[in-house]
Design a protein around this nucleic acid. Structure first.
Length: 364
DNA sequence: AATTCGGGGGT
DNA sequence: ACCCCAGAATT
């Protein structure tokens, strides 16, 4: 015997850790549940994975509960009204996900007999399912040995192997390392374990290396600062854009809304009328960009940070007579504003002009 | 390979 | 203030 002891394979160490420390999540079939014979529902796995794209578990939970209660199966979602789906998604962000979610449900329900493809390639051919999500569904829902690489796993792998290549160039190398590490047995649990590890132990700041099941194998621990991994390309600064928003309220307390075009930023969502969002703004915007002539007066500014720019909206308000022209939009009663497909920035603008607009007790 | 897509929570 | 988050689609 040339070694004093044999170390367990990293995959076995991670699975053993996962059996003890896994988190209970609404879409997860935990090891005890699996032992009791519970099988994952591909619909719920898919729905959760799409919602979790660039979105935290905490933010997803309430939306996942809402969607699964309202649309329990992929067939239900396929038959749903597009606008109802957008309204239910409002606030979660990245609205192309909601549009693709609906398209994907229709494809599965109407072209695949209501059954999700059970291979990575088959899944990836569906709208809104890319490299990560296809691998994750294949592994978690269908027990396929696919290499699941998300932001958590990138961090774990980059530290474990001290990868110096910056992201995103390092992705192929990382995926190969994950593939080599993924076990034949329990690949779905392995994927979830790696993500849990990145979310709770191998964190971006102050990782709990002392508690990590892989600390004996980590190439960074003890040699460099784990917080410096993964290496990443420098990011560019966010420009500021300016704009005006117009909140009109009629004598019945209804607010004038309109629908944005289907593509691009906040595509297909509801908005209050406004100017274009540009680097500079001229002085007579209030008179040129308003939806109709009225006694517009400024109420203040709201700031909203998008992924690639910061928006500062000057919010104008007016009180107009009942029956004011509604070209290009509609009048929405304040009591039902909360059910509209309003993205967060639009809710901010309305609240700036009408502070109690979303107060259910006042508007009921 | 770069850019465009939201929003919120942690530090 | 800055970081990141179970990324995908488009250019």
């Amino acid at each position: 015997m040339t070694q004093a002891y044999r170390t367990m394979a990293p995959a076995d160490l991670i699975l053993a850790w996962y059996d003890k420390h896994h988190r209970d999540l609404p879409w997860r079939v935990s090891p005890p549940m699996a032992a009791a014979g519970v099988k994952p529902d591909p619909y719920r796995i898919w729905l959760s994975e799409v919602m979790l794209q660039q979105t935290t578990v905490q933010a997803v939970k309430s939306y996942f509960a809402l969607f699964t209660a309202r649309w329990p199966t992929v067939a239900d979602l396929a038959k749903a009204d597009n606008e109802d789906v957008m309204k239910s998604w409002a606030g979660l962000g990245y609205y192309a996900r909601a549009r693709n979610l609906k398209k994907c449900a229709e494809a599965v329900a109407f072209e695949h007999g209501g059954v999700f493809p059970d291979t990575e390639d088959g899944l990836k051919a569906l709208p809104g399912i890319g490299d990560y999500t296809a691998a994750a569904i294949a592994a978690i829902a269908f027990n396929r040995k696919s290499a699941v690489l998300d932001g958590n796993v990138e961090r774990v792998i980059s530290r474990l192997h001290a990868i110096e290549t910056p992201l995103p160039a390092a992705k192929p190398e990382m995926r190969a390392l994950v593939a080599a590490m993924t076990p034949e047995d329990r690949p779905g649990d392995f994927a979830q374990a790696m993500m849990d590890l990145g979310a709770t132990i191998c964190t971006p700041r102050r990782p709990a290396c002392a508690l990590c099941p892989l600390n004996a194998d980590c190439r960074v621990l003890g040699r460099d600062d784990p917080e410096l991994f993964p290496r990443k390309a420098a990011k560019k600064e966010k420009p500021v854009r300016l704009g005006a928003a117009f909140v009109a309220e009629d004598e019945d307390g209804a607010v004038f809304l309109r629908k944005r075009i289907e593509s691009g930023l906040l595509g297909g969502m509801t908005e209050v009328p406004g100017s274009a969002w540009t680097a500079r703004i001229d002085g007579d915007t209030a008179t040129t960009a308003a939806p109709f002539p009225a006694d517009w007066h400024p109420t203040g500014t709201v700031t909203h940070v998008f992924t690639h720019f910061e928006l500062r909206l000057t919010v104008y308000r007016s009180r107009v007579p009942r029956g004011t022209a509604k070209d290009g939009g509609w009048w929405q009663p304040k009591a039902t504003l909360d059910g509209e497909a309003l993205p967060t920035v639009m809710k901010k603008a309305i609240k700036q002009a009408i502070p109690d607009a979303f107060d259910k007790t006042r508007n009921a």
